[in-house]
Design a protein around this nucleic acid. Structure first.
Length: 447
RNA sequence: GUGGAUGUAGCUUAGUUGGUUAAAGCGCCAGUUUGUGGCACUGGAGAUCGUGGGUUCGAAUCCCAUCUUCCACCCCA
């Protein structure tokens, strides 16, 4: 193995036959984000390892066993970003964006890296669309980002997603809750699975997440975080729900939702699907009021989410969502003979400059083979140029959908206007969609 | 990191109890008389049967290892 022709485990190539689908998702997501007032931030793929240790949390699985960390030639410990929030916060602080009007709302669309065992919906290099709202304290901000995520799915025609929200409180009320949880699970310690036993000390809230039937049955009767929220946290959570109701966004409160990154406080939420296998969380996020301070800034509330592009793609494939068609060739120019070949290239060049998708033969094939090729690439129109066409200037343009041909005479026109004649001829075929090209004023200038 | 399954031409697969030049369909390329595609026909290229060992006179077929992919655990997007 280890041949140069093998990609790295857990990575994906996106080929021309499907890249247009990703482009569609990306442009949709960008447009929606900007409608919500979020603008793009781009940060490096790698950062100081310490940044992730501090933000994501030393005890998390992500930091402990999933990061791609290496030492660079200067002896610094560098890590490929496992998520997008840390870099965004770092950049926010480094460039003093807290001095700009708050809240600062940013989005990113980038690759992330986690050294996990790949499976459906989980890759080692994957892509996230995420937003962050810095300096936004109110429940309205939480609701706004949930609405944004919801809008993305709606726009892309994804359905059957459930929005699950929870509040994990602030450090103060969470401490109370931890105590109560530990007391409860202590009574059932003998029944818990091995992993949950280890979680008992490390992070008892994660036991709530366990999928083993025994543990989840025990967890069902466990104390619920929402009963332990302090007054402020409770009010915040209630208001988030009111805002969501106000926007007609369906959600359910799920006390089991516990995020695996340390920086979350108060609101947490997930968009979950059961159609793409075990990794059903397509989008996850929440509030992280302590993170900016943790990374050395002044205390500033914030919230955000991240959406897995590959999971979204999986979901869209599973639901057979519609994608706009890939851009196809408008005109293929078949030619034979050196002079005609050169003429074909010249015409193609003119038309391309006008924004029309044109291709010509670069494999020196027979006219028949060129026509076959034109058919395969889905060219809407073709024309053939040979000796006789060069001589009398009369060229046939063929509509590939119905085979109807149309003659045009280019002999009385300069090179510069020949391409306009061709364009007009193409637009006169009403069956295919080039009619919207308006060339009337250019042609008007001819006569 | 743990467990289960998988791996034959670009793709989808066939390969019988281990036995001569590893099949097929699709795709690709080229032809089917004069310079025009979609149909049909003909021909061609293309596989060291994931990789490395081993058993055997002989292995795509058996054994071991390793890698990949897939599925689940774990964790997360």
């Amino acid at each position: 193995m280890a041949l140069v022709t093998n990609s790295i485990k857990g990575t994906l190539d996106t080929l021309p036959s499907s890249s247009y689908k990703l482009q569609y998702i990306e442009s949709a997501v960008k447009e929606i984000a900007e409608n919500y007032g979020f603008y793009e931030i781009r940060t490096p793929v790698f950062e100081h390892t310490e940044l992730f240790n501090r933000s994501v949390g030393e005890t998390t699985d992500v930091v402990q066993k999933e990061m791609y960390t290496f030492t660079d030639k200067g002896g610094r410990s560098i890590t490929l970003r496992p998520e997008g929030t840390a870099g965004a916060v770092r950049s926010f602080l480094e460039h003093g964006l807290f001095n700009e009007p708050l809240p600062q709302k940013v989005f990113y669309l980038t690759s992330c890296y986690r050294n996990e065992k790949p499976q459906a919906g989980r890759l080692r290099e994957f892509h996230q669309f995420g937003v962050e709202s810095f300096g936004a304290a109110t429940p309205a901000a939480d609701a706004e980002i949930i609405a944004l995520a919801n809008e993305v799915f709606n726009y892309l025609g994804v359905n059957n997603l459930s929005i699950e929200i929870n509040s994990i409180g602030c450090p103060t009320c969470r401490a109370e809750y931890h105590k109560a949880l530990k007391e409860y699970f202590a009574e059932h310690k003998s029944e818990l699975c091995d992993t949950c036993l280890s979680r008992f000390d490390r992070n008892p809230m994660r036991i709530l997440d366990c999928k083993s039937p025994v543990c989840s049955e025990i967890a069902e009767k466990a104390p619920v975080i929402t009963d332990f929220l302090c007054e402020d946290c409770n009010e915040h959570f209630e208001l988030v729900k009111k805002y969501l109701n106000g926007m007609d966004i369906d959600f359910s409160v799920n006390p089991q939702i516990v995020r695996g990154l340390d920086y979350y406080t108060r609101t947490v939420f997930e968009f979950v699907s059961n159609e793409i296998g075990a990794q059903g969380t397509v989008c996850g996020g929440g509030r992280y009021d302590g993170l900016i301070e943790e990374l050395g800034g002044k205390p500033l509330p914030a919230c955000g989410f991240a959406m897995g592009i590959e999971r979204l793609m999986l979901l869209m494939e599973a639901q057979k969502s519609e994608f706009p068609e890939r851009k196809k060739c408008d005109l293929f120019i078949a030619s034979m003979g050196e002079n005609a070949n050169i003429k074909a290239a010249a015409i193609a060049n003119d038309l391309r400059n006008e924004g029309i998708s044109v291709q010509f033969d670069t494999a020196s094939r027979s006219v028949k083979a060129q026509m076959k090729f034109a058919n395969k690439i889905g060219a809407a129109y073709t024309m053939v140029i040979g000796d006789s066409e060069l001589e009398n200037g009369i060229i046939k343009i063929k509509n590939m959908a119905d085979g109807i041909e149309k003659e045009i005479n280019l002999s009385n026109f300069t090179d510069e206007f020949q391409s306009e004649i061709i364009r007009q001829a193409m637009s006169e075929f009403e069956s295919l969609g080039l009619n919207d090209i308006d060339i009337s004023n250019i042609l008007g200038g001819l006569s």
